[in-house]
Amino acid sequence: MIQQHTEAPILEVHDLTVSYNKKPVLWGIDFTIPKGVMVGIIGPNGAGKSTLIKTIMGLIPISSGFVKIFEEAIDKVRLRVSYVPQRESVDWDFPTNAIDIVLMGRYHKIGLFKSPRKADIDAAMEALEQVKMTEFAQRQISQLSGGQQQRVFLARAIAQDADIYFMDEPFAGVDAATEQTIIELLQKMVQKGKTVIVVHHDLQSVKKYFDWLLLLNMHLVASGPTKNVFTDELLQKTYGGKLSLLSKVGDLLKQHEFPHRE
């Protein structure tokens, strides 16, 4: 197994095992992630990608092992960590509008038992502007398209102004233009020194988007810089057994080699 560790990691996951009803779905996961990179988590459906992120966020109990962010337990650093759940995990018929969702990202800055001040509203509007959603601020969320809803979730994360971001499939169901907007935004965040960790399904864009990869299928297949880890052999191991997919992966790798030779 290729497993590249880093000095002074921003995220350390050590020998992590997670179970639902005593049945482990993640086994002995062990990796570190350096500061200021764009990380992709890749793996088939049911590989435990969402489970891994939720466990790192402290939303699912750990069976064994530990997680450290900024060398601390998650509960001590929640202010610096942002989590973007899968879009389908919430009911978008909820009676509220886009800006109210974004304001949830300002929860700690607003303070307990207070209501949002002008600074909070400005920050929320600024976040909406970054995802090009200004004109939809007052729009009821059920009347947004899937891609717009995804951008509202992203704006909420931006409003949190965290140092490390965990995003569960932010590109699911968005069109090419929206995907471009989002990826540019994430790249800008990485340039500012933030660390962005994204669950991703589209193998075609992996090389373009990510500096660092985690290949996951209940076990960690590999972790490290994309150029070392995104190989035919490791991908076959990750998606093991699915023949049609395997040949497709092979094709993809070949396709991607052309531009790199230039």
Binding site: Y83, P85, S89, V90
Partner: peptide
Amino acid sequence: FDLAFASS
């Protein structure tokens, strides 16, 4: 609205 985010 979003229990996972609220917990996070």
